[in-house]
Design a binder for these strands. Structure first.
Lengths: 232, 232
DNA sequence: AATAAAATGTTGCAATTGCAACATTTTTTT
DNA sequence: AAAAAAATGTTGCAATTGCAACATTTTATT
């Protein structure tokens, strides 16, 4: 008990933080304050607080709960048939996670807090029931949820597009072209670390650095301080 | 016109086919006959027929239409920054496709018929409106749609898991372990061609064959006629 | 039944990549 | 301000992979 109290003392997230932090939570988009209050009194669980490195969920199997990160960051990790650990996803405020979105045939999947964080849960079955009873609030909530899942889908499609490229060079050029289109400019900042980019593209980091150097030497790109310029 | 008539003559799909073919369409799951009739009179478009190799949709951009394959097969293709063509997805009866699920930053994406097929469209905005007006049928339809998108999500996650493996050996073993869990057996049939499997894992087909041979030689697996047995 | 098309299986070779092992710089934590 | 941790940058080397180019078998089409 004392131990637990100690954890709570260290929590960096505000337990009674105002509603400002709820502003950026996609699933609560376009709800009035009173509608939010209604949601918190019915569908949504009380806030759950987790300290850094704590386990948020273990073997989500056999529940239909969907978690929403309100504050802090988490990670979804998978432990493989051979014991290797990989990061499936990084969770930021507004991210959702659930067993519903994971393969039933997956190996062990756990969700952990990488910083102190606040999480809310709700039951998907309960949401469906409320929708079928005609609740406009539940309906709106479902449509917001759907939008999040669609966005996840789009992000996964983009990553698959990159991962199916056969060489690091092609992965990088495809990724850079994508960013160039996104920002409508031949120049753009990579706002990620090379370490994370290598993970994202599923290649060895040192091999990525090497290929980047080659692309510069051969005049395909310029790069200064993580700012890339496509040439051609 | 004659030309067009000629196309229709060749159509392999039944234009007035009974409702049997609608049985397996996931988005129509658990609707009564009269509810289906209602959907076909309101939200859903008339059936569209496409002949083999015809273009079903080109640059889906700027519409919110979602297509449902009723009969036949299609493919979603992407043309890259360097002109290379890749298959994003193969569409079977019950599959859906829409610009909503694709990155806005993608290069040209087109949908084509690989056999004669029948397709129905609906507007996502219209579906949302009907839901918000409290239509139970629209609501049920949205939940079915959501389930399909969740399944796509799960499938994409599985593929990403495989694609992030660094070697062909690891990809194959992870895939085989997945099938083994799925069928709860050390032995299972690969019901796909090696050509397609190599595409799915984004590796060279001949390299895949070679690695498969090595796995057999080294005693990790047995393989007879596309039936794999895991040894350990 | 004949022909065409697709899938399977194999191999040599060159190019790419992962891995290991560093030094150096930047960022974070104490 | 010092120490620790994380990220960047580099290189040699061996292993893996893609590619090209076949022969053979199976499946689909006419």
């Amino acid at each position: 008990m004392l131990q637990l109290q100690h954890f709570f003392d260290k929590l960096k997230v505000e337990k009674q933080g105002g509603n400002k932090m709820l502003e950026n939570i996609a699933i609560l988009k376009d709800f009035t304050e009173s509608e939010k209050k209604n949601l918190f009194n019915t569908l949504l669980s009380k806030p759950n607080y987790f300290t850094k490195n704590a386990m948020i969920a273990y073997s989500l199997n056999n529940t239909d709960l969907i978690g929403i990160i309100i504050q802090g960051e988490g990670q979804i990790l998978r432990y493989d048939y051979n014991g290797s650990r990989t990061v499936i996803d990084t969770l930021k405020p507004g991210s959702i996670f659930s067993n519903l979105f994971l393969s039933t045939y997956n190996s062990e999947v756990i969700v952990t807090a990488i910083t102190d964080c606040e999480v809310i849960f709700f039951s998907y079955e309960e949401l469906k029931e409320r929708c079928q009873k005609g609740s406009p609030i539940a309906n709106h909530f479902l449509i917001n949820l759907f939008q999040i899942v669609i966005n996840q889908n789009v992000n996964q499609s983009e990553r698959i597009e990159l991962l199916t490229k056969r060489s690091i060079r092609d992965k990088l050029l495809t990724y850079f072209n994508y960013l160039s289109r996104k920002y409508s400019s031949k120049s753009f900042d990579l706002n990620t670390s090379y370490t994370l980019l290598a993970d994202y593209l599923a290649v060895d980091r040192s091999a990525l650095m090497r290929e980047l150097k080659h692309l510069k030497e051969e005049g395909f790109i310029k790069e200064v301080n993580k700012r890339i310029t496509l040439i051609s």
